[in-house]
Amino acid sequence: MIVYTVISKGAFIRPRNIRNILQSTTVVSLLTIGAGSLMIAGYLDLSLGGIGTMCAMLAAFLLRAGVPWYAALAAALILGGAGGAFNAVLVNELNFQPFIATLATASITQGFTSIISQGKQIDIANPVFNFIGSERVLDFIPYSLIISLFALLIYGVILKNTKFGRSVYLIGNNAQAARLAGLRPKRISYTLFINAGCLAALAGILLAARLKSSNTVGITNSQFAGMTAAILGGISLGGGTGGMGGALAGILILNCFNNGMTVIDVPPYWQVVASGILLLIALTADFLSARKRAAN
């Protein structure tokens, strides 16, 4: 952080930039919640980017067709949930490995995105959407950020303090023992996949609302950011560890890192490379800490 501040001659810590960092956190944090809670339970979803983009496109399409904003929002969220349910069916009923099942779903959702949009971007003129996307409290804190922080807080509490949350951890550690002790891993798995799908839809919509248009790339690239943030925040790919507090830290690290690169004028293309490398670094750290745990 300090390095960025020095290189950018202070631009990095100006309020305007901090606001930018906070604003760009929204999408990633929603994806991190969805992906992270799945990872704690030992699952994985590579289709969140695809689902979110598809849902944002549907919302934009419906708005353009004159559907009221709440109906468009509801339809998009339902579609997100349906995408998650589809993953859950593939994983639970057909026993696919989560990564391949969700990879297939990702490909299908990309197709639907293109079909809905005919490959073009759809502008969003709805005032409510634009308000959510770009208005700020006290002219500083974006509403969308409030939504995402609120979500992190709520999910953090759910994971740590409710039966459902406890079940997620227990299943991530030992699904078989948890089932024989009376939990229902299948039901939890469905809930988590559907929940992640809905959150992805919300993330996609918030981004589209901010950009005032929905395009076919959408939040596809943020999906890895979501996973990376979760892993950086201590949620192990092996399942059973980590939490939302760590995830928040992971998100902030990730976003400062990315935003810092923008501020010191690293071309945006390089940021794609960097985020891939960051994922690998996060994995290495995860691997090292897992090895340390095993050694103890």
């Binding site: 590579l46 990564f99 490379v273 891939g276 490398i277 994922l279 994995l283």
Partner: peptide, 27 residues
């Protein structure tokens, strides 16, 4: 290297490399 030396799951390592390659190509 990632899979056999560091013990990553194969799909996650190659997924990470995929995004690295895509980024480099774009650059």
């Amino acid at each position: 290297f990632f899979i056999n030396k560091l013990g990553f799951m194969s799909f996650i390592a190659t997924l990470g490399m995929m995004s690295v390659y895509q980024g480099l190509v774009t650059v």
